[in-house]
Design a protein around this nucleic acid. Structure first.
Length: 488
RNA sequence: GUCCCCAUCGUCCAGAGGCCUAGGACGCGGCCCUUUCAAGGCUGAAACCCGGGUUCGAAUCCCGGUGGGGACGCCA
């Protein structure tokens, strides 16, 4: 049977990288086995859910290249895919549980429950619901109903031992006595997470539940619910959490946690996917750089590690650099263009020239934003001289003369290609009796304003004879002009 | 506190009883290339949490300890 898996985010927040990885594992599993990837929005918490969050999550998934076969916008035979539109089903399920003796009404006030918990905590104990309402006399129930007292539905946890075989963790067993009679339907008639997940997983025919480790302790409750609802439970695979550098669950304190944020910072989706896939999963060999197709080809739930993983940004940076180096020029240009605009620049009109520039810059960049920054000197009319660069390479009194000589020599260099430009620069240095480096560094400041750049000869050729000469001459003029604040 | 999960270089992984003198990657150090910065090539340092078993033999299996994490809501 083809597997049906689902990613079920709650739109109470953005798409967290941990969630993105869970989604990725589900997606990979579905694609690997020709199954179906369902996207379901768990928005039963009306107070905290928002439509904007849904949009953000959908955009994030799409950006990563994770498409869903059923879900919002895609539709499907098991819809609706928003839990807020499925409330009647949960209510029906709750009613059925009560009718069949698997659940009962609870009239306890939240205040009372809170007080009991606080008292228990003061004693250093964990408090579990005392089943007060299970033992309510019929007369008392009648009284409560007569005044329409708010009531929730609680699941009557049976004494059955709950055990399951987790694909990543192996056999896991829970003592039912450690599980309290949890609420399945709130007094406002909205289901709790436990009820809605199970009802939906049953109705949507989910065969494999691949979700975060933090749900392990919820699993026995779900197992009990599946049983009470007369459905066979799916296979469970609990993937370990992603941690921050301090080994605590990754949160905003550790820096960026949202997929959108990484996107904004200039990471490539393919790099993000590759990195996330390798966080807690391994193909079994030493492969590091893997395309989406390769990931699909070798993904297996058995390859998921049982221990949590620290999110290592340095490795992400390296990986992104690798992808940046391999990205086809056209795609890189398209990805960088908007960043240039955002930086007040504009992409060059000549695509071939733009691509040459990009090829010079990409090995020096980790992220798209680096490319945009590195491109600046090549896209402005007049470069800004970095004070440190001036101090470092323009201090010598004969520098203006050297640069002027180079400008003159380059003015007649023909053809203006790398070998000839290099020969000219070296010959000029020799004529002036200085090491080539002196001239090269000064020229670099002239044409880029910076201490670092791609190889000078490549830069000069890219800029072309006219612009190169003009920039060299401008530096000569600049050095000849007394500036305020300079010591004579 | 109770329950559950986890435990190999700083980090991410490989390792499913002898192939381990523990392998790869990131990061870090060195060297090479070199006009700067990167990239690239070569190279180095760096780990089986501790204690008991089982076995001819344990990083691998079992038990205990310790450590880390997670869950204990009318949140998801």
């Amino acid at each position: 049977m083809a597997p049906r898996v689902r990613f079920a985010p709650s739109p109470t927040g953005y798409l967290h990288v941990g969630g993105a990885r869970t989604a990725l594992f589900n997606w990979l599993y579905a694609r690997r086995h020709g199954g179906t990837f369902v996207l379901r929005i768990e928005d039963t918490d009306v107070q905290r859910s928002s439509a904007d969050m849904v949009t953000g999550i959908l955009d994030g998934l799409r950006w990563l290249g994770l498409d869903w076969d059923e879900g919002p916008e895609a539709g499907g035979p098991h819809g609706p895919y928003f839990q807020s539109e499925r409330l009647d089903r949960y209510r029906a399920a709750a009613a059925r549980l009560v009718a069949e003796g698997h659940a009962y009404f609870c009239y306890c006030s939240p205040e009372r429950l809170r007080d009991e918990r606080e008292k228990a905590e003061a004693r250093g104990e964990a408090w579990r619901y005392d089943r007060a309402c299970l033992a309510l006399a019929p007369e008392r129930v009648a009284e409560l109903e007569a005044v329409a007292a708010p009531r929730a539905v609680r699941f009557k946890v049976p004494a059955t031992h709950t055990a399951f075989d987790d694909v990543v963790h192996g056999p896991i067993a829970f003592d039912p006595r450690s599980i309290e009679d949890f609420v399945v339907l709130r007094s406002d008639d909205h289901p709790t997470y436990h009820l809605s997940v199970v009802v939906d997983d049953v109705e949507m025919g989910i065969t494999h539940v691949i979700r975060g480790d933090d749900h392990i302790s919820n699993t026995p409750k779900h197992l009990l619910l599946f049983e009470a609802l007369g459905a066979a439970p799916p296979t469970f695979a609990h993937v370990p959490l992603i941690l921050g550098a301090d080994k605590k669950r990754l949160s905003k304190r550790h820096g960026a946690t949202s997929v959108t944020e990484y996107r904004r910072q200039g990471y490539l989706p393919a790099a993000m996917v590759n990195f996330l896939a390798l966080l807690g999963w391994s193909p079994g060999d030493d492969c590091e750089l893997m395309s989406m197709a390769e990931l699909v080809g070798s993904f297996s739930l058995e390859g998921i590690s049982g221990s949590s993983a620290v999110f290592n940004v340095e490795k992400l940076d390296w990986m992104n650099g690798q992808y940046l180096a391999r990205l086809p020029a056209g795609e890189l240009a398209a990805a960088v263009a908007p960043l240039l605009v955002a930086a007040g620049l504009s992409a060059p009109g000549d695509p071939a020239w733009f691509h040459r520039l990009l090829d010079l810059l990409r090995p020096r960049a980790k992220r798209l934003t680096d490319v945009a920054d590195l491109a600046r000197p090549f896209l402005v009319e007049t470069v800004e001289y970095d004070p440190q660069a001036m101090e470092k390479h323009l201090e010598g009194s004969d520098v203006p003369g050297h640069v002027a000589a180079l400008a003159a020599a380059l003015g007649t260099t023909d053809p203006f290609d790398e070998p000839h430009v290099e020969a000219t620069v070296r010959a000029t240095a020799a004529d002036r009796g200085v090491k080539a480096g002196v001239l090269i560094h000064a020229a670099r400041v002239a044409v880029t304003g910076r201490t670092t750049s791609p190889g000078l000869f490549e830069v000069l050729v890219l800029l072309g004879r006219d612009r190169s000469v003009a920039r060299l001459e401008r530096l000569v003029d600049f050095l000849a002009t007394p500036r305020a604040g300079t010591i004579p």
